[in-house]
């Protein structure tokens, strides 16, 4: 026996009247799951104030952290991916491209800028994971290739910030060949004795790791970033047992000898600046 009786079934609150938290005020840390104010994040180098987790950020945020007064010039804009294979899986590639452009307001998965770090010039190519998983296709390869040419011509050090699921399947062999393209261009940069710093961030995998990401004069990574050739799921399926704790994290790579240093995001700018001065003086 209840005191109150429901006379109409279902939830009747009209969705238009529903009070929702507007987007862009709060954010949840994917690591400690605590809620943080977004404003707090931007003033904290996009680190979780509770657990120091390095949140995934894009090129705009990295440039803001790196370049003096957030001042930089975009170089090599205007390149747009082309559906040369007429590729279609569950969605046509052209649709994926359009949706990604609309969602991210980016041209492709990499943004190249030239600016100054503590007064020293630097060209930085930064990948954006939000654009089709930061996948490397012809545009990414071409912009990196062009940036390397630019660095050689103007004798400016290069930094690439990797954040990628690997090569872009929808461009098949064209994306595979971007590995060869970027690596061979880097061999020219090396011959010209121009420093190249590679920063690996969460996640860096596949063809990106197996080309420019691993080829830095200095290889650094953010704490706890996933850096892999084959992704953990693929490895697990192959060996059919659980993966060891901490497998394929930047700490693991440092231990195995593939990184020079793990750099906390708050020390990133100073660390890069230090490296540049070592090369210069």
């Amino acid at each position: 026996m209840t005191w109150l009786k429901r006379i109409r079934n279902g939830i009747l609150t009209k969705t238009v009247e529903k009070q929702e938290t507007p987007d862009g005020i709060w954010s949840q840390c994917p690591d400690c799951k605590k809620t943080v104010r977004k404003k707090e994040l931007s003033s904290n180098a996009y680190l979780c104030p509770q657990c120091d987790h390095h949140l995934r950020i894009g090129s705009a945020e990295y440039f803001e952290i790196l370049f003096d007064d957030n001042k930089f010039t975009e170089i090599f804009s205007g390149y747009r991916a082309k559906d040369i294979l007429n590729f279609s899986d569950l969605k046509p590639y052209t649709t994926r491209l359009e949706q990604s452009k609309k969602k991210t307001d980016l041209e492709d998965a990499i943004f190249c800028g030239e600016g100054k770090i503590n007064g020293e010039p630097l060209v930085c190519c930064c990948m954006d994971f939000s654009f089709i998983g930061g996948s490397m296709g012809s545009v990414v390869g071409e912009k990196i290739s062009k940036s390397i040419d630019y660095c050689i011509e103007h004798k400016i050090p290069l930094m690439i910030i990797s954040k990628s699921g690997g090569a872009r399947m929808m461009e098949a062999a064209f994306s595979l060949m971007q590995m060869a393209k970027t690596a061979s261009k880097l061999s020219l940069l090396a011959r010209a004795k121009i420093p190249y710093i590679s920063l690996m961030t969460d996640p860096t995998s596949g063809g990106v790791t197996a080309s420019y990401a691993m080829l830095g004069d200095i290889n650094i990574a953010e704490p706890k970033a996933l850096v892999a050739f084959a992704g953990p799921r693929v490895v697990k399926e192959t060996i059919k047992r659980e993966l060891p704790e901490g497998f394929q994290t930047s700490e693991f790579l440092l231990e195995k000898g593939f990184l020079d240093k793990i750099v906390h995001r708050k020390e990133l700018k100073q660390t890069i600046s230090d490296f540049l001065s070592y090369f210069k003086n």
């Binding site: 082309k82 012809s138 390869g141 064209f174 060949m177 971007q178 393209k181």
Partner: peptide
Amino acid sequence: IDKYANIGEYDF
């Protein structure tokens, strides 16, 4: 190196 530099299809 030129051969690889030329591989890639995009609009500009």
